[in-house]
């Protein structure tokens, strides 16, 4: 992974914007920002952002590569689309944020312990395994990802919701055993592999 990072940094010397345009989902929109800040103000997670989207766009133009890619900020995006709706330049800000996060992750620069990233990873692995999410496994895995003690505490805190979901038959307590996955698991795996190949090729991650 470090190699890819080095290779990219080398390839786009001094021009982080070009690197973003070439490698980040919807990255070609970054240059269209006029720094009005409406996105930054519109984000419901506002104060949680170290660098709000409009600032990230400026940082990209200013070549602050490490600061951007190692930032926790774009992992904050919850895809509410408020920013996209309000952006006077119609930038697909949500997509760019996810694109940046994804790119940072691929380069190995994304903050390792970022909870969003870890959740995303868990979710993906869970889903990709059988082609269908095993909810109980995902929930329990998430609660216990920082160890047994915190896992118990987290699960306990969520017990009322859990019981409610059980009663409403929205959660299958035997999911560990009975989860079936989709019919053609092999097909799914093949499909995902192919998709990964295409994406890697498109983004220049293949050797």
């Amino acid at each position: 992974m470090g190699d890819i990072n080095r290779a990219m940094a080398e390839q786009y010397r001094n021009d982080f914007l070009k690197e973003v345009e070439a490698n980040v989902e919807e990255g070609q929109w970054v240059k269209m920002c006029m720094q009005c800040g409406v996105c930054s103000g519109s984000c419901p997670l506002g104060p949680a952002w170290e660098h709000p989207p409009q600032e990230i766009f400026m940082m990209i133009r200013a070549g602050r590569r490490d600061e951007v890619l190692k930032s926790e900020s774009m992992w904050m995006c919850t895809s509410c689309y408020n920013c996209i709706v309000r952006c006077p330049r119609e930038l697909p800000i949500t997509h760019i944020m996810h694109g940046l996060a994804n790119y940072a992750h691929r380069l190995g620069l994304a903050p390792k312990m970022n909870p969003t990233r870890r959740f995303a990873k868990k979710f993906w692995n869970n889903l990709a395994k059988s082609g269908r999410v095993n909810e109980i496994e995902l929930s329990v895995g998430l609660y216990f990802m920082d160890g047994f003690k915190t896992g118990i505490a987290r699960a306990w805190a969520m017990k009322d919701i859990g019981i409610g979901m059980l009663k409403a038959k929205r959660l299958n307590p035997f999911g560990f055993l009975t989860h079936k996955g989709c019919k053609d698991k092999k097909g799914i795996h093949k499909m995902l592999k192919k998709a990964r190949e295409i994406e890697d090729r498109r983004k220049g991650f293949t050797a």
């Binding site: 720094q35 009005c36 930054s40 506002g46 709000p52």
Partner: peptide, 8 residues
């Protein structure tokens, strides 16, 4: 509500 973009 918003963000002063000069220095965030």
């Amino acid at each position: 509500h918003g963000v002063d973009t000069e220095g965030y």
